[in-house]
Design a protein around this nucleic acid. Sequence first.
DNA 1: ATCCCGGATTGGAACGATCAAGGAGCCAGC
DNA 2: GCTGGCTCCTTGATCGTTCCAATCCGGGAT
Lengths: 347, 347
Amino acid sequence: MSRTEPRGTGFIPVSPPTLADVAERAGVSRQTVSNAVNNPDLLRPDTLERVREAIDEMGYSPNRAARNLRTRSSQLIGLRVLPAQEGTANAMMDRFVHTLVGTSAEAGYHVLLFAGDNDDPVGGYDHLLRATAVDAFVVTDTYLGNPQAAWLSEQRAPFVAFGRPWDQPHATHPWVDVDGAAGTRLAAEHLIEKGHTRIAWIGWRKDSPIGEDRRAGWLGAMRDAGLATTGLASRVEDTVQSGAEAAAVLLDESAPTAFVCASDTLAMGVLHTLWIRQLAPGRDIAVVGFDDSQVAQVFPVGLTSVRQPLEDVAVAIVRALETLLGHLPPPAQGVLLTPTLAIRESS
Amino acid sequence: MSRTEPRGTGFIPVSPPTLADVAERAGVSRQTVSNAVNNPDLLRPDTLERVREAIDEMGYSPNRAARNLRTRSSQLIGLRVLPAQEGTANAMMDRFVHTLVGTSAEAGYHVLLFAGDNDDPVGGYDHLLRATAVDAFVVTDTYLGNPQAAWLSEQRAPFVAFGRPWDQPHATHPWVDVDGAAGTRLAAEHLIEKGHTRIAWIGWRKDSPIGEDRRAGWLGAMRDAGLATTGLASRVEDTVQSGAEAAAVLLDESAPTAFVCASDTLAMGVLHTLWIRQLAPGRDIAVVGFDDSQVAQVFPVGLTSVRQPLEDVAVAIVRALETLLGHLPPPAQGVLLTPTLAIRESS
DNA sequence: ATCCCGGATTGGAACGATCAAGGAGCCAGC
DNA sequence: GCTGGCTCCTTGATCGTTCCAATCCGGGAT
């Protein structure tokens, strides 16, 4: 039908077989082949068998564009990638993306990456949406107080957020997040169990809701154990340098025996200070980081770190997307997952 | 035309405007609107203006599926993601993917991620290809001696490889790669310039062509400088542990004053051994890694490391794809880019 | 023998864009 | 006044699939 012949010097690639081609070969109509693919139950077993043989022999796969056009869906999930920020633990996203791709595939979806632009936070979303190029979005940068979630809700675009709508308590979109407070509580309780009583906190500046959440976990564990916290907390920028300085100050002024940090980056700073002062991590002073980044794993003195269940997050997000796109009743609006503690030599 | 009305309790999302909708509004035909979008030169300025107004007012974007169906192209580039391998420096890929997405966007393409399966290396490619779901592929795992490149060539599928066809010297597909030998040569020459004469090599086992390539760079620089290399090279697994052990052996047997490593992972092992022996990296013994991974950057004693120009690689790949898909004459078959050296305290 | 029923199968239409021709309208030239 | 060549725009067909309604067919009830 639409085969192509050799022409000129080279060969033009043979265009793939269509429904009509398969139908002709199997001696049935187009619609029957379509049913064989999408609703096998409708066919008599012998017909189904015959059609399937033809499909296999010809190596037929439904043309995506045609199917998308007719069904008004693309089987694609959009994921915005932010401008690369060297240094910080965005490598963590790798784990998440991997599982997202895998789980999406099982659900029949592919992941479409598109470039993000900080000056125009909804531009990419808008284009893809209006072109009906994706069925839904996974939004990962809700924490910045970005307008994406609100905007997408307004557009009635299906999406699931990785991250709670901190600054929009009345948002109704589905989201999945990791309970940071539970993670730092885990870290603090682990240290308390090891006999530490003076456990310091090094976290982010007060304007970060995530940072305050993590801080709250440490604080809660300390209070529950009846331990003092005054003079033991510090809020700084998320850099190695800041972590090192904060650790130095805390050691001088409050003599803690352990540190819980809001990030592995800060924990690296603490380790740096310990190294300078000839203090052995894990023996003299315990340190716990957050994110279980590559650094924590490869560092010569393995760094104990709170590990986010990113694989579970990805799975939960895909589940939420499935119900969303299946037009099923909206399930639980938010899912909060509990992190684990990857214990290594530093504690 | 295809607007939808409120129904039942909730609102059904309004379907986006079509070409016909815009045409009606602007008082022209469908084709004229299509031309306004794709071939503005064909329209009279005043008509173009009128159509553009209508497009803006209605917020029209061409339906991707319809366009794809008619033009037989999807404007998508497929990228296979491998099963996540914790620990190693796959985070490096992050930088690459970011630039790939950005550059592709400029060229009018999006990036489609699909899951890889080691048992069936071409399965994912095959599906997408037959369904005409992507226009081309970027293949990143050529180094494993995987059959993807050969298979895709055979299928006459457009693709560009990140990585030389080491084991297929007669392959004709376009590729982009980083000159690993040049990188290690850079590292060795940097150390020689610093006055080192006994520079050791810790690399991968002999069956890795990439490893042998990197080793050759070190070897070449040493020979050019007239320095001895016997007893100064070691080939091990790519783990921190192996790197540490190799460093210990080399220090005992050959007393090198500097190390060049095939990866940051191995370099971390060296640093570990130095730490145990109370040797200061950079002052007592110099160390250079490879990949400029996050670990190299965050480590308290900054690790000097060979940095691959991944951004340039991504750009070169997109350029190659563009010429490939524009059916222009195939350009240079292979592009070899030179890495740089990120110099830090460890050297 | 006829009628009806329900499962299996079919042909036409539609999704929304682009391609390939085919007009209007205008001006110059004979 | 007719033709020819432009420019600018329009009409019908088409890409490959799924939706929809209609048709076919064999078997049990009338």
